[in-house]
Amino acid sequence: MSNESIYLPRPATIKNITKFTESESLFELVMDDNRPLNHQPGQFVEVSIMGIGEAPISVSSSPTKKKSFEICVRAVGNVTRAMHRLKIGDKVGIRGPFGKGFDTEFLKGKDILFIAGGLGIAPLRSLINYVLDHRADYGRAIILYGCKAPHELLFREEVISWRKRKDIECHLTVDKVPEGEHWDHNVGVVTTLIPKIDFNPSTTYAVVCGPPIMYRFVIRTLKERGLAEDHIILSLERRMKCGVGKCGHCQINGIYVCQDGPVFNYSEIKDLPEAL
């Protein structure tokens, strides 16, 4: 039994920063011990900035990318705002990966309908890229990605490259197009894309991640399209302070998001009043 503290972060160095929007950037990190993070798509890490604190952030890159990993950070709290002040070469602390990610084995051979709202694309991208790196193992890959306005689109270049690929389908939408912005795609919340696409409910699994408000509407629409409850997979956000099932903050009724999630099958949590 190791006596190592479960609260001690390991150092990682910022290799690259890609600014997406005023408040969102992608940070590429390399563990200083050069060991791969060994995460599953959908897992999260606790990111430390010493002197500021720690925040749970989902890993945005696929584990097939071994030398480094990426996290997409929105500057919204103390830690994430401090993160945005860092430069290439600066160090952060990493604990994890923690939690239960997407079951990539189970999804093999299945059609996958990815539904992302806003920053929800960040955890989904780890699975999207995993599927693209093992393309032959999976059925159809359909991506529905919505955000508030065109200028809030994250991973823009990558999204454009997804749209160019013949082996995936990628549909975009924005809630509104503010004056002066250009947009060639759907306008409306991400739910409005669901009736427009064709999929086979018996072979398709929907993988959903977005702001809390989105889930209820997306789930209702998916069910209307004939998708069974256990064909819906969600990644949930909560206050995960310790990441290791101790501090109590992330509880949804009796379950711990940091241990039993953040990825859940909808059928597991649909009867938990605090879940959605």
């Binding site: 503290s5 609260y7 001690l8 150092p11 010493m50 002197g51 600066d90 160090k91 602390g93």
Partner: peptide, 16 residues
């Protein structure tokens, strides 16, 4: 739980 030195790039140790 931890103590650290901010004058270094990353100098953290566990405390128990």
């Amino acid at each position: 739980l931890l103590k650290y030195d901010l004058t270094d790039k990353f100098s953290v140790e566990a405390v128990n």
